[in-house]
Structures are given as structure tokens and as C-alpha cells.
Amino acid sequence: MMDKARIQVLSDNDRRKFLIRLTSVVGAGGVAAACVPFVASMNPSSDVLAKSLTEVDLSSITLGAMLTVAWQGKPVFILHRTPEQIKSAESSNGGIDPELDSARVKHAEWLVVVGVCTHMGCVPNQEGPGWICHCHGSEYDHSGRVIRGPAPKNLEVPPYHFVTADKITIGLA
């Protein structure tokens, strides 16, 4: 296409190669940095982050009753366990994902777990041995430990702490 004889392209020399490589690296760095605001904008915004703390008053939950509260938009089960439930929970190690009951509670009569099945994310119903997930039939005991599959893991215990004897804050900080 081009008349090569008339337009002569000088062969690459080292300086030129170095300059082009340096510019490419600097340019690629800039493009990568320019992606940061775009990617970051899809992370939770500051008002969503501010909703990551939930305060719960426990005094209204009677013995054996369960309260479901929203934390980060997810259901959290707060179960006021009866002595029998505590006893049966402490007597076993769970099934598929063995864990001590004492490692999952702060006060034995209060179980706080995220009510999201660890299999495919459905919300289990309170029935049977503790909870049964109707999506795929996973069963959990009164410590929120999985005792029948297909769920691979126990119900997650969210970070929480007791502000007073009957008040907890779910979430970090």
C-alpha cells in the first residue's frame, strides 16, 4: 500500500523502545487507577454502611419465643432458649459441621444466628428439631447447627455484644 522506498522508517533503537515501554506502563497504571472510582462506586454507599448496626431489646422475647430482626437487610433469629433446648444443644456436637454449643452463644439462653440457609440462601422456618429450610430440606438444631444436608455449614453467628443484660447490638463496633 505505502511506497516503502520513499518513506523510510528508522529501525527501533534502545531509547525509543525504553520510552515506549515506560509510557505504556505509566499509561496502563493511569487506566487502572481510573477504574478504581467506577469499581468503588458499586460498593455499599455510606448510608448503607451506616445501617450495618442493629440494636435489639430482648426483654419482650418470652421464654421459648423467637424474634426475627433485620441486620444488613438479612433476617437474624434471636431465640430465647428453654432449659430443655439448651440441654439438648449442649449434649451434642451437631452433625455435618461439628461445633460446640458454647462456642456459638454468649449467654446460653440467647441464641443469635443469621437466618440464612448456608446452602442456597433461603430463610429456614422454625419447626422440627429447630429450623427446616424448605428450599432443599436442610435441618438445623436449636444451636443453629446443620444436622441434615445439603447445607454444608452451620447457621452463621453474626458479630454482636450485650450492651446491657437485655439489650444487644448486632454488627461490629
Binding site: 518513506i7 525509543r16 520510552l19 515506549i20 509510557t23 505509566v26
Partner: peptide, 15 residues
């Protein structure tokens, strides 16, 4: 840098 590269590349052009 882009200016320097441009000068380099165009300097290879001998008419």
C-alpha cells in the same frame, strides 16, 4: 511522555 514518544516515532519518518 506521550509527547516524547510522538517525537520519537515521527522522527523515524524521513520524507
Amino acid at each position: 511522555l506521550l509527547y516524547l514518544v510522538k517525537q520519537q516515532i515521527w522522527s523515524g519518518l524521513r520524507r
